[in-house]
């Protein structure tokens, strides 16, 4: 894939170390992680639980400041949350229950000061149509299914037309069939509008399917293990004789073996 070529990256994560406090410990979530996201990328952060991928996404969202390194979006360092990086969460309660589907999308546009009144409403309806929810525009979130709620959240994020869309395991709480359908829909949306998305997941098939570029992270603390390309269909690479998911599986699995071997001596 030769999308951006030599063009400047949209998002630069430079040597970022993230730490957070629990009641008893200071936990290092990621250690000196660096990667670049280019415009139009479907960039996936993949790794087992504990590799700090969600923490990393929150840092890009501006909810958390790095103790070392910096995160730069379009040449500006990120220091606080803002509507240029919209987050789609895993939880269903990200929709405001006191607003209808349409009002939820309009709320985002108006609260951030992007658009007002009729313009905001038109933009909202356009994106609600993109996720096929026009019939439910006046429904309240509690009357929708899980998949529909996530589609509203995606529509709300996309309506903002942010520089980058941040998705934190948005399909993890869905059943397998709905999940598969949502992945297809997301790819279709990307075909239509070519947004840039940073996508966090712990599922190898999902990463291979969704991403064009996959950053593999190792756990405790999260460090970059590899950055791979994906063409989405996971076929056997003639040069290596294995599929992409097999390669990823092997890389993650080798960690587990090492850990087991090291453990008895320690």
């Amino acid at each position: 894939m030769s999308t951006a070529g030599a063009a400047a990256p949209l998002l630069c994560v430079k040597g970022v170390t993230l730490q957070y406090k629990t009641r008893e410990h200071l936990v290092t979530a990621t250690y000196r992680v660096s990667f670049d996201v280019h415009p139009g990328d479907r960039f996936v952060l993949l790794g087992p639980s504990g590799c700090g991928k969600s923490t990393l996404l929150k840092a890009v969202g501006g909810y958390l400041n790095p103790v070392e390194g910096e995160i730069v979006l379009k040449g500006k360092a990120i220091s606080k949350p803002g509507p240029d990086r919209v987050m789609v969460f895993q939880e269903f309660d990200q929709l405001l229950p006191w607003k209808t589907v349409k009002q939820n999308v309009v709320f985002a546009l108006e609260a951030s000061g992007r658009l007002r009144g009729k313009e905001a409403e038109d933009r909202a309806m356009a994106y609600i149509e993109k996720v096929n929810l026009t019939r439910f525009a006046e429904s309240f979130p509690h009357t929708l299914s899980g998949g529909m709620k996530q589609r509203v959240a995606i529509a709300r994020g996309m309506a903002m037309e942010p520089d980058i869309l941040l998705m934190d395991e948005p399909f993890a709480a869905l059943d397998a069939l709905t999940r598969r359908k949502m992945q297809d829909e997301l790819l279709q949306l990307w075909e239509d509008t070519r947004f840039t998305v940073l996508f966090v997941t712990h599922s190898i098939p999902e990463a291979v399917r969704i991403g064009n570029r996959i950053l593999l992270l190792s756990p405790h603390p999260g460090q970059v293990k590899a950055e791979l390309n994906s063409d989405g269909d996971d076929s056997v690479d003639p040069a290596l004789g294995s599929t992409l998911s097999e390669r990823i599986h092997k890389m993650l699995f080798s960690d587990a073996v090492e850990a087991e071997e090291v453990h008895p001596d320690a």
Partner: peptide
Amino acid sequence: SNTMRMVGRNYGLTGVGYVCRILVPAAF
């Protein structure tokens, strides 16, 4: 919920706007 708080901050709400448009309805 923390998710709802983060949603509010994501769209740039702070101070009075944050209280009136997120906290009060969410705690209704």
